[in-house]
């Protein structure tokens, strides 16, 4: 199959050609945000029902998993 322009340097295939901006991958030293041991910055955003959610308030004294992802659309 002649779809070599869909495979990146990691051998990963996506239907979007590799020369598109969304296919750019960072170097190994890319930023990963707050360090282990620091407080999670405030996250207060609308959820899928449009209701404002403050992660810290909603968790109370429970642990949390917070995932940042690229898109639920593409």
């Amino acid at each position: 199959m002649s779809d070599s322009n869909h495979y990146d340097e990691f051998g990963f295939y996506a239907p979007l050609p590799v020369d598109r901006a969304a296919r750019r991958e960072p170097g190994a030293d890319f930023p990963t945000g707050p360090e282990i041991g620091s407080a999670l910055p405030t996250v207060c955003l609308p959820n899928q029902q449009g209701q404002l959610v403050d992660i810290r308030q909603q968790c109370g004294n429970r642990r949390a998993i917070v995932v940042f992802h690229r898109s639920a659309y593409w």
Partner: peptide, 9 residues
């Protein structure tokens, strides 16, 4: 978009 990843608090 973010660089995707997960935090555990």
């Amino acid at each position: 978009i973010p660089y995707p990843g997960t935090y555990i608090t």
